[in-house]
Design a protein around this nucleic acid. Structure first.
Lengths: 227, 227
DNA sequence: CGGGGGCTTGAGGCCACTCAACGATAGTGG
DNA sequence: CCACTATCGTTGAGTGGCCTCAAGCCCCCG
């Protein structure tokens, strides 16, 4: 019998500043801001990874494409999330703003320089990469072995943890984005959501279909089925 | 237009010793060995991650299970590969020896102690984790968006790079293992291999079906379809 | 108010899964 | 040395879950 350590207990730097950037102690590090309109690209796959980003407002999708246009979204980056941190010299995903988005950014080189002398910063970089790895590992299980209903249930629970405010979850991404994240088609996602609605697991708020209230997290977790 | 940096150019420590373990300079680090019979568990998911392993001989699968028995293999570890390196305190996969296997192992704590003072070692840990992350990211694309034939083609090309000797690839894993790695059933994997055989892309050696010769890597790469 | 994008829903099709039978191989014990 | 058995792999027949194609609704926005 072992002590269960939850994901939440793993230290996670929650701002670029926490990665080791103290403005008073290191004047070389510049924290600038940049904004992107809905749908525009932030960087492309294979481009040199010169900057690391943090979402200040808005939402970002990062994805890979096959040559015939099939798309796999690897992650959504919401307010507070750090992305674009690659160890090698180039980005491995293309990223786009899902809605109008503002990001903070730092030069990657600044980070690496600091990491070489500060073990604490190096540890934070490793910790962030490990968190990304863990997310990818869980997502492989979802993509390889879960049914459409299980995938959508897992998605709702993930988003619930990350962006629910005042009981309602305002999804920034479209059905197509969700589908490409879950390895499904948008129609299948829509059908699954309708089914969950019929089951009384969730409700829609207002006229838009992007505001969702989870009515029965217990049942939803039962539909997901993790261990 | 950007310079393309291949995976191979990313520095990858190829032994536990390279991770910073110099036996003459650090007597505290013990490099012991251990052997596992075919099919036995090395460690289980959620167990404390006290050791880091390197395959000396044999092969290892690491996987996650759903409660109803569905299995997703996240990676195969072949001779020379390092596995079991978790940042948090517990393993995120169960690992088993696919065939009789001998591993080298070091205490995780030894590594972490060294990493705190040696930036080079810390950099190697990050580099290894990044390589694992990159593999997982590519595998998400495969699991989410590729057809069965594309998956099997990709698998053969991956194994070809990693374990082909003298033109023949001796697969240590069963069809079921391959299927659980690719998010398919064993029958579908078998059919895909038969189809590739008919197409003249590969040949079988001897009576066992686990020794494969790739006859047309070009065509196989065309069937995979990466970018 | 007209156009267009996003979402839902239905009908039909297809690819991978399920179930099943069979052959081949390797390991076991008489 | 040879049954005997278990495991592994292939192949076929049929099913089903998700995809494809299509129509229609709603809302936003110019």
């Amino acid at each position: 019998m072992f002590v269960r350590i939850t994901t939440d207990s793993i230290p996670r730097p929650n701002s670029l500043r926490d990665l080791g950037m103290r403005s008073e102690s290191n004047a070389m590090v510049s924290l600038s801001e940049f904004s992107y309109r809905k749908g525009t690209e932030i960087y492309g796959e294979k481009e040199p990874a010169d900057y690391v980003y943090q979402v200040k407002s808005g939402a970002v999708r990062s994805y890979k494409l096959l040559s015939d246009g099939r798309r796999q979204i690897g992650a959504f980056h919401l307010v507070g999330d750090i992305f674009g941190l690659e160890n090698g010299g180039e980005h491995r995903f293309t990223t786009e703003a899902i809605v109008d988005t503002t990001v903070r950014l730092v030069r990657r080189q600044s980070l690496e320089t600091v990491a070489q002398s500060d073990a604490m910063v190096a540890q934070n970089l490793l910790s962030m990469t490990t968190n990304n790895l863990q997310h990818a590992e869980d997502h492989m299980l979802l993509l390889g072995r879960k049914t459409s209903l299980e995938r959508v249930a897992a998605f709702l629970l993930e988003m619930d943890k990350r962006l629910t405010a005042a009981g309602v979850m305002a999804l920034p991404m479209s059905r197509r984005d969700i589908a490409d994240y879950l390895g499904l088609t948008l129609e299948t996602v829509s059908r699954a959501l309708s089914r969950l609605h019929e089951l009384g697991v969730l409700g829609f708020v207002g006229n838009t279909q992007r505001q969702i209230v989870l009515l029965d997290r217990q049942q939803l977790a039962g539909l997901d089925l993790q261990p």
